[in-house]
Design a protein around this nucleic acid. Sequence first.
DNA 1: AGGCGCGCTCGAACCGATTCGACACCAGGC
DNA 2: GCCTGGTGTCGAATCGGTTCGAGCGCGCCT
Lengths: 356, 356
Amino acid sequence: MNIGEIAKRAGVSRSTVSYALSGKRTVSEATRRRILRVIDEAGYRPNASARALAEGRTRTIALVIPPAGRSLTPIQLGFVAGVVAAASLHELDVLLSPSGGEHDRSFERIISGRRVDGVILMEVRLQDARAARLRESGLPFVAIGHTADAGTGCWVDLDYEGLVGNCVHHLADLGHRAIALINRPQEFLDSGYGPARRALDGFTAAAAARSLTATAICCSDDAMAGEACVENLLAAHPAITGIVTANEAALPGMERALRRLGRAVPGQISITGVVGRHWAEEFHPPLTAADVPISDMADRAVELLAERISSPAAPERHVLLAPPISLRSSTAPPVQRAESDPALPSQGSHAECSTS
Amino acid sequence: MNIGEIAKRAGVSRSTVSYALSGKRTVSEATRRRILRVIDEAGYRPNASARALAEGRTRTIALVIPPAGRSLTPIQLGFVAGVVAAASLHELDVLLSPSGGEHDRSFERIISGRRVDGVILMEVRLQDARAARLRESGLPFVAIGHTADAGTGCWVDLDYEGLVGNCVHHLADLGHRAIALINRPQEFLDSGYGPARRALDGFTAAAAARSLTATAICCSDDAMAGEACVENLLAAHPAITGIVTANEAALPGMERALRRLGRAVPGQISITGVVGRHWAEEFHPPLTAADVPISDMADRAVELLAERISSPAAPERHVLLAPPISLRSSTAPPVQRAESDPALPSQGSHAECSTS
DNA sequence: AGGCGCGCTCGAACCGATTCGACACCAGGC
DNA sequence: GCCTGGTGTCGAATCGGTTCGAGCGCGCCT
């Protein structure tokens, strides 16, 4: 069933059918009605490949995900779902492309075969080969996270530096004097992954500004690493009363370690950070944190891309999101140790216990 | 840069370029070399839309995911990644399609616009409108999970009935006499979601075969629900010593509840079930479970689909996977309560505490 | 009455590939 | 010397749409 068949049945030419459907030229009401009735009866839909060829656009965007071998984190997962949903509202379909290693052929196939009108690039690095390739190809694209040359290209990102800084200030305001950052894995930091780098920068700067004793460590993206991390951290730095985390996957392990060490949250240790809402709410007690606005980011990315596709000459736009800290119940003023008025003996004794 | 331009530069006709590339007719060695050199210099790749139109196939498959609004479970996420990776090996691209609610337009667009050569349908129900639509359209498709009329259509599924049965037998072999099943949410059961239904059937049948006291309950797909679920369960049925779960998302909450109730695993309560490996390993202690072979399932689904696309007349194939139970450390013989030799007084007293 | 403009429709070109039939060329066999 | 068969190449048709230029019929204005 193609447009020619419809035209024949309606007794008009193919072009008239096309115009009746697109509305790009006027078609008399009577003719239009007749054509639409035939189309309806036949259940006709224009062939997407033919239309793409003629129009020069595919109405499809690519979403480039990190190497598929490694399991995606729930935050990335949410992002994928968000992009699909947002694209659906723009009548765009989403082609999923893995990248990295053997899958680069797929990426290359999609780019150079002009299978898509634009690309959303997840988890970009400060130096990113895929971004460079896209720039060279001239295909519109939006990066999630920005590359080292932040001025060029469109991107949507989270202000990790500011957000982590806010967390530090939040702890400092409560009276904490010794704090720690639990960051993403060391290899992310080494390979120039922006969020990890900027989380560290923001942490260091804010801690310095408030004259806090600050310790930053990296932690693999899993619960077991989080558990070990917190144990080592508190053993090496017993004075720490506040923790900022940029690593959501480690949270369940952190919770486990704190419980085993007998450190109450927020009684003895306050925890905050930048994590997905889901993780913040699953934590026990619910985590006071800057919630990563995943679906916001997905919406903005698709919006930026759609805009760029329709007017490629428009200036490149950037979006830097900085969600507020959602107050839940994992932070509180630190326990006063032996100094002024020991008003809370039970908490005090607990604290002594735990440091032994 | 198109095939005509390449032909001109190489001094041959367009068809010769095409044949040199596809190898479907012989081209002299000298000509072929010349053409390839020109292609290489120009960085030419055939336009995917044009090729799709001419060949009548898009070299793309659709992966239909559950309504995107609800967060995907990690198991589904892993499946998406697995399908993308497997498809990449077959030189197929993957178009992601949400389904359900407002997103059905996207599904319809993909199907009737012939954007893809085949479809993989996730999370099918026993009665599934999408499967019916696909059957009607004649597009090859593979379902993950099977519909009520299991004979028709291709599918890949897990033998939930047998697997949950194995878990029951495992507990029975260890000596447990009172067990429970923690299933997927009630609404899944009600809406005819196969895995939930078959898990229940397998549980009931195996428990009856071994004359066990059996309780089956449903539980929402999140940690808080799991926590409440285990608490209520053990309060209502204090005799229970073994739990089988088909709900991986509830595991963290179950762990939390058991710890708070002071029930040691596997000392006082044994736990097993059918869950993704990741979840089994994150559990504390590591969960003895039938690991859902996610990437296996993805591979098989893509393989079946690729086969069906290349030879649509071939008989429809089904794959029912039944992975073995991986022994980790969350199951053990039950504590003997007050009967024969009370060899473990401390555990016994704990048990008394917790039931109070 | 002639000319103009407008509304509607048609035919043909085009997008960029694949594929089929035809043909030129050359070697070998009678 | 002619026919045969195989090899290599070309031109044209085709896939199913979109879009442009042109033409037709009609009413209105001068």
